[in-house]
Amino acid sequence: MEFIENFDPHYPIIVGGLLQTEDRFGFLNVRIRRHRWHKKILKTNDPLILSLGWRRFQTLPVFTTSDSRTRNRLLKYTPEHTYCFATFYGPLVAPNTTFCGVRVVSKQNTTGSFRIAATGVVEDLNADVEIVKKLKLVGYPYKVFRNTAFIKDMFSSALEVAKFEGASIKTVSGIRGEIKRALSKPEGHFRATFEDKLLMSDIVVLRTWYPVHPKKFYNPVTSLLVKDKENWVGMRLTGEVRAAKNVPTPKNNDSTYTKIERQTRRFNALKVPKAIQANLPFKSQLHTMKKQRKQTYLQKRAVILGGEEKKARALIQTIQTIKNDKDEKKKAKKSEKNKERLKKLAKLEEAKREKEKEKKKEYFAKEGRKRRLGASEASGNAFGNKRRA
């Protein structure tokens, strides 16, 4: 009914049909790249209008990348000048189908002169997409034994600890460990074993992967069903809705950046017992002086420069600096002269080599002629003797 009521003959309409396989919906895995002329980067779960096949629809893509372990890791934003993967809910199409995406289709809310936000190609249709994001859980030891420690503030219940039994953990100082068993009291605390003894100031970290599920959102662009066909508005960003309704952005105290003040750690000095010190060899013995209770002569006396002496020292210092500057200049000039001299010597050496080569050529040419003449005379004499005989 809206199509007939809001029909505008100035807009051309192409009528087509869809195959039976094209009526199905599901999750699509695509390879996508932000257009290099688009000014802003794209964010995960932000609404994007895609022109895919015969359809134009709004969806919420989740951008991912595959690491070396064939794991689909979540990306918060699209990378610069390179492709990434994306998963979204929409109509199923054949693989290798290309598409393009825009942020908005209305002429009022344009995000710059260039509207194409992204381009890509459909890779495969997969409903079982496993997308994960990195999650770091942090805990602190409150009781430390030899290689065992009790950790707090990492989990909130014994059930969570049971899920991660046997998981490998690591401290900031690099000591590896393993989660063993949850404690009965207090809730969420657990026992863990480590390679070495922990310090009370250590921080224990558990690296995990948290599954992310793409949202089933499909909003077709129904611009032909409204009167103002050029200003169709679909799902808006949270910031745009807040700006339109003058709602302030809520502030999370945990997300605000605060100045970190760390206390300087003071380590106790090494104390070796006297019994061990007595048995040490001479080279390894600790030579320590006793603390002096009285001030020495050097500590007592105060050397204060007088007026004339101060002037004399300042004058000597200036003279010394001038002398050092002159010496630097002399060294620089000398090095330049040495470079020129080395160049001349290299040229003379080259000329000398060339002359030696010419002399050798002349000598060997003369020797060759003499040998040829001697050989020809010997052969002539032999031929004459034969004829006489």
Rank of each mutant, 00 (worst) to 15 (best):
K251L: 15
K251Q: 14
N252K: 08
N252L: 07
N252V: 01
N252C: 08
N253P: 01
N253I: 07
N253M: 14
N253C: 05
N253H: 10
N253G: 03
S255G: 09
S255D: 15
S255M: 12
S255H: 10
S255T: 11
S255A: 13
S255Q: 11
T256M: 14
T256P: 00
T256L: 15
T256I: 15
T256D: 11
T256V: 15
Y257H: 10
Y257A: 12
Y257W: 07
T258H: 08
T258E: 09
T258D: 06
K259T: 12
K259G: 06
K259M: 10
K259I: 14
I260M: 02
I260G: 00
I260W: 00
I260V: 07
E261S: 07
E261Y: 03
E261F: 06
E261K: 06
R262D: 04
R262L: 06
R262W: 00
R262C: 04
R262E: 07
Q263T: 04
Q263K: 05
Q263N: 05
Q263I: 02
Q263E: 07
T264V: 07
T264Y: 01
T264I: 06
T264L: 04
T264S: 03
T264G: 02
R265T: 05
R265W: 00
R265E: 09
R266W: 09
R266Q: 04
R266S: 02
R266A: 02
R266T: 03
R266E: 04
F267E: 09
F267H: 09
F267A: 03
F267K: 09
F267I: 05
N268M: 15
N268S: 12
N268H: 13
N268Y: 09
N268L: 15
N268G: 11
N268R: 15
A269R: 15
A269T: 14
A269D: 14
A269W: 14
A269F: 13
A269H: 13
L270S: 08
K271Q: 14
K271M: 13
K271G: 01
K271W: 05
K271L: 15
K271H: 12
K271P: 00
K271N: 13
K271D: 12
K271T: 12
K271R: 13
V272G: 08
V272P: 00
V272T: 13
V272C: 14
V272M: 13
V272E: 13
V272A: 06
P273N: 15
P273A: 13
P273Q: 12
P273T: 04
P273S: 14
P273K: 13
K274T: 08
K274Q: 14
K274A: 12
K274S: 13
K274D: 15
K274F: 01
K274W: 04
A275G: 10
A275P: 00
A275Y: 06
A275R: 12
I276A: 11
I276Y: 05
I276C: 03
I276F: 06
I276D: 11
Q277I: 03
Q277W: 01
A278G: 03
A278S: 08
A278K: 11
A278Q: 07
A278E: 11
A278C: 04
A278Y: 01
A278F: 01
N279Y: 00
N279R: 09
N279M: 05
N279V: 04
N279K: 10
N279A: 05
L280C: 03
L280P: 00
L280T: 03
L280M: 08
L280E: 02
L280F: 02
